[in-house]
């Protein structure tokens, strides 16, 4: 799995500049500006199945779901981080993008290490060494398994209308 590595406190303006928030909301419009002010090579280089390995407080700042939509659209398999900012964490759950808090994995990674991720069993292998992370809560899994919050909501509303 290819890894894109970033540090601590990456904020929402770095992930997707605020100046575009009222003109871009579809994944195709978001893609060219994704991580624009953090890593200009990202949006053209990212491939399906890539991973992000990040520091603490990733996604801090605004309530801005475009970076989540963009990363999901780009096919990012998961983001492994030391910690995530609260609103970003929720936004990711709501889109079915997987975030994994596993500080030891982040610390262990060295450039070029092979990363193998097994979400179901809660393990990450980095350069041959195993790291574990706790399972996601049921409320979160239910949303993810439906394919995101809106799909989950539709499923729940459907029976009401019969």
């Amino acid at each position: 799995m290819r890894v894109w590595r970033y540090g601590d406190n990456v904020n929402t303006d770095m992930l997707f500049p605020g100046k575009y928030t009222y003109t871009c909301s579809k994944p195709e419009e978001i893609m060219p500006h994704l991580l624009e002010d953090l890593d200009p090579d990202f949006s053209s280089g990212v491939k399906k199945g890539d991973l992000l390995l990040v520091g603490s407080n990733f996604g801090c700042g605004s309530s801005r779901e475009q970076p989540v939509l963009g990363l999901k659209h780009a096919g990012i398999e998961a983001i492994i981080g030391r910690s995530f900012a609260r609103i970003f964490y929720r936004a990711a759950i709501n889109q079915g993008l997987i975030l994994i808090e596993c500080p030891s994995a982040v610390d262990a990674y060295k450039d070029g290490d092979e990363v193998i991720l097994d979400i179901g069993s809660g393990r990450i292998e980095i350069g041959g060494e195993e790291h574990r992370f706790p399972p996601l809560p049921d409320a979160v899994l239910a949303i993810r398994d439906s394919g995101g919050l809106l799909e989950y909501t539709r499923k729940r509303l459907e029976p009401r209308k019969g």
Binding site: S63, R64, E65, R86, I87, R90, A91, L149, L150
Partner: peptide
């Protein structure tokens, strides 16, 4: 609120917090 500064209303003793657009839609 679908804005991170929804936390402002703590000033008047409310529990208020930000969420994303999809959650607001739901």
């Amino acid at each position: 609120g679908s804005d991170s500064h929804t936390c402002s209303y703590g000033a008047v003793n409310a529990f208020s917090t930000g969420i994303d657009r999809t959650e607001a839609a739901a």
